[in-house]
């Protein structure tokens, strides 16, 4: 297992004393990698928190350039980067925080051509995509390659998160067996909402990698930040699921 440098011990010393985490957990983070789909309101904060926690490598996939309307929530984008590629801004900002981090960027969204290869490069996948095409692709590949998947979603002041352990728990296709045709990706949003569920997503990835605590395996945590209500619902694995039933 990778050893920690004196600098790393100094940076992460406040994490070492988290019960069941310790230096061993920190080493596991250093040796591990995470794929994050999109670096928008969700993905930006997931990436930032993982970089802060000392993950070894992050792979980011998101096409397109920074727009003004991104800046209320996409915290890895800056005003001086308007019109320039999002993933480049994300890499720049992450390395400012953690220069030890390895960042691989793909200036493209997850698609049928790259999904398999990108998932194969990492230990954990965090799904932050706004379109179900990408989400189902990542779910399919994560299940096929037996990689844990943290599924983060949001709409206005509502959000939800669930963790998929292939072969053990419900996957995204168990949750949504048919195509959510009514979903529209444009909705009102505050950065504080995407940031909230993104931080939960980062913590899920950290727990999965360092093997402590209880991830939301097969449990859907929903929240409404309008009235601060939080609920957890057990989600059943479907024995007819076209993605995970045979896993």
């Amino acid at each position: 297992m990778a050893e920690l440098t004196d600098k790393e011990k100094a940076v992460y010393e406040w994490q070492f004393t988290v019960p069941d985490f310790g230096e061993e957990g920190q080493k596991k983070l250093k040796e591990s990698s995470v794929l994050i789909s999109r670096v928008g309101g969700l993905g930006s904060v997931v990436a930032y928190e993982l970089a802060a926690a000392g993950i070894g490598k992050i792979v980011l996939a998101h096409g397109g350039n920074v727009k003004p309307s991104d800046l209320n929530r996409q915290l890895l984008m800056t005003d001086d980067w308007l019109g320039r590629p999002r993933v480049e801004s994300a890499k720049r900002r992450l390395l400012e925080l953690n220069p030890r981090l390895e960042v691989e960027i793909v200036n493209s969204n997850i698609n049928e051509e790259n999904a398999g290869e990108l998932v194969s490069k990492v230990d954990v996948v965090v799904d932050c995509a706004p379109l179900f095409e990408e989400r189902f692709l990542m779910n399919r590949e994560a299940v096929r390659q037996h990689k844990p998947l943290v599924d983060c979603a949001m709409y206005e002041l509502e959000a939800q998160i669930m963790t998929v352990i292939p072969g053990e728990s419900a996957c995204l296709s168990c949750l949504y067996p048919d195509w959510p045709k009514a979903w529209k990706r444009e909705f009102p949003v505050f950065g504080a909402v995407s940031g909230t569920v993104a931080c939960l997503g980062a913590m899920e990835a950290i727990k999965l990698i360092a093997d402590f605590g209880e991830p939301l395996t097969g449990r859907l945590l929903t929240m409404n930040l309008r009235d601060m209500s939080f609920h957890t619902t057990k989600i059943n694995k479907r024995n007819t699921c076209v993605v995970c039933a045979q896993v």
Partner: peptide, 29 residues
């Protein structure tokens, strides 16, 4: 979701003041 549990059957045995939550799918952002 019936009283905080995903429904298991197509018939619901409900009682007075039970809660049924109907959730439409959401994605990221």
């Amino acid at each position: 979701i019936h009283n905080n549990e995903q429904i298991q059957s197509e018939q619901l045995e409900v009682n007075e003041n039970d809660e049924i939550l109907i959730m439409s799918p959401i994605a990221g952002g």
